[in-house]
Amino acid sequence: MFGAILYTELFKIFRRPRTYISFGAIAVIVLLVQFALRVNGTEFIRFFTDSQADTFEIPESQILNGYFVCVAILHLILIHVPLLVALIAGDMIAGEAQTGTLRMLAAQPASRTTLLLAKFSASTIYVILLLLWMALFALGGSLLLFGQEDLVVFRETDLHIISQQDVLWRFIAAFIYAALALTMIAALALLLSVFAENALGPIVATVCIVIVFTILQQLKVPVFEQTINPWSFTTHMLGWKGFFYVEKTSEGVTINGSVENPMALVRSGAILIGYTFLFVLVAERVYRKKDILC
């Protein structure tokens, strides 16, 4: 029964033209960033390396490679993808309520829990497909256009050079982590969707929540840094970047296959999974008792 409902939900998602807006938007953004970096990539890199230009020979043409471009794209896009996820997941229950099909849906010989879990699973599959699409364009396309080289990752106070042989697994891990983070957003949107009678509300509410927590995180003021931010999901959603922070020996040489402070990543992943479970659990409890007759 679960499989049949899941199939129906996926059919509904991919029948809607707006689903493809997300895929189209991602393709357009990726292509625009690739075009921009193809034309003005050197200037882009100089922004990061300017302070060291007097001391070091900066191998700009080598830094501008497919892996670097892909990280730049993910950095630009992944912050905004929650909006695209909310567009689908926020519509899951509220959309049915708006179109009046929620009662018909509940009349099926399946429990409301099964129904909600199928909707959540369909949202998760949508998230995964969206990320696969992004990987195809951002990673595959950038490697085709810019070629392979070592990856240079710039942070606020340091930079990491990762051997190209040690990069691919990091991208796979980062995409899996991003799927985890966006699935949590899908769970949040689904939870808000359970409370609403029209689809717009939960979509906007999800986006607003993400924006508020992102701003609190970017403010970097102690009052939020010590209270909200350690538990804010937007803090942990950035964990995908952690796979590109590499450990070094006492002599400054990077250790292949290493990740700087991996326990922080485990903690962040656990917090995201925890939020996902919590949101789905609350959504299931609320939906099970939801009065769908009025």
Binding site: I79, R155, E156, D158, Q218, W240
Partner: peptide, 16 residues
């Protein structure tokens, strides 16, 4: 080496 705050949106893993 210091980039302007917020440009790289670093993940805080406690080591930086």
């Amino acid at each position: 080496f210091k980039l302007p705050k917020g440009t790289t949106l670093d993940y805080d893993n406690g080591s930086s």
